[in-house]
C-alpha cells in the first residue's frame, strides 16, 4: 500500500502566477511522456517482472514518480491561482478553463487528455526495461524544452530537479543486471528465443 507524506519531494513556491506557463507544463502531468504515465507504467510492470531486484527498482522509481505528479500538480495550481477571466484569455487558456476552470487536469500541452496508451506494459523483461530507458530520456527532453521556454527562477528550479531525476532513473534502470551482472545475465545483451 501507499502512505501519504505531508510534504513535496522538492519545494515549490511560485511568486508570480503565469497561466501561459501552466499551459505547457501540464504536459508533464498528463502528456505522452508525463509523470502520471511514468508512475503507472512502472507500478504496473512490477507484477510480471521475474527478478526481485528489478521489481524493487520499479516499485521505488514508480513511487517517486507519484511524488513528481504531485510536484507538477502543485506548479500548475500555483501558476493558475488568482486568475481573472482576462488573464485566462490573454494566456490562451480559454479552452482549458471552460472544461476545468483552475482545476488540475491531466492532459498534454496540445490539449489531448491523458491516455493509457502512454503506459507501456508488455509483460517482457527486455521490452519493458527498454521502454523505461526510452521513457526517462523522453521525459528529460520534455523538461529540456520547457526550460528553454520558461524564464522564471521559481518555476525553473523544481523543473531542473525533475529533469535531474530522469537522468538518475535512466542510470538505475540501465544498471539492472539480475544475479550478479555477468555477461550471461546482462538483460541488455540477451537475444530473445522465439517460443
Amino acid at each position: 500500500m501507499w502512505i501519504y507524506e505531508r510534504k513535496l519531494q522538492f519545494p515549490v513556491k511560485i511568486k508570480n502566477p503565469n497561466p501561459r506557463y501552466a499551459k505547457i507544463i501540464v504536459s508533464q502531468l498528463g502528456g505522452p511522456d508525463g509523470e502520471l504515465g511514468a508512475s503507472t507504467r512502472y507500478l504496473n510492470q512490477r507484477y510480471s517482472m521475474p527478478y526481485r531486484d528489478v521489481a524493487g527498482i520499479l516499485t521505488d522509481v514508480g513511487t517517486e514518480e507519484l511524488a513528481h505528479v504531485e510536484m507538477i500538480g502543485t506548479i500548475l495550481h500555483q501558476l493558475t491561482r488568482n486568475m481573472c477571466v482576462e488573464d485566462v484569455s490573454r494566456a490562451g487558456l480559454d479552452a482549458y478553463f471552460v472544461d476545468h476552470t483552475a482545476g488540475v487536469f491531466p492532459q498534454s500541452a496540445g490539449g489531448v487528455p491523458f491516455d493509457a496508451k502512454y503506459v507501456g506494459v508488455k509483460g517482457d523483461v527486455i521490452a519493458d526495461l527498454n521502454e523505461d530507458l526510452a521513457a526517462e530520456q523522453k521525459a528529460r527532453v520534455t523538461y529540456d524544452n520547457l526550460l528553454r521556454m520558461i524564464d522564471d527562477h521559481d518555476v525553473c528550479e523544481p523543473l531542473r530537479f525533475l529533469r535531474a531525476r530522469e537522468l538518475v532513473h535512466y542510470q538505475r534502470f540501465g544498471e539492472t543486471k539480475p544475479s550478479g551482472g555477468n555477461a550471461k545475465n546482462n538483460l541488455y545483451s540477451v537475444i530473445p528465443r522465439i517460443l
Partner: peptide, 8 residues
C-alpha cells in the same frame, strides 16, 4: 535506496 536497489 535507489542506488542500493541495483547495488544491494
Amino acid at each position: 535506496a535507489l542506488y542500493l536497489d541495483t547495488h544491494p
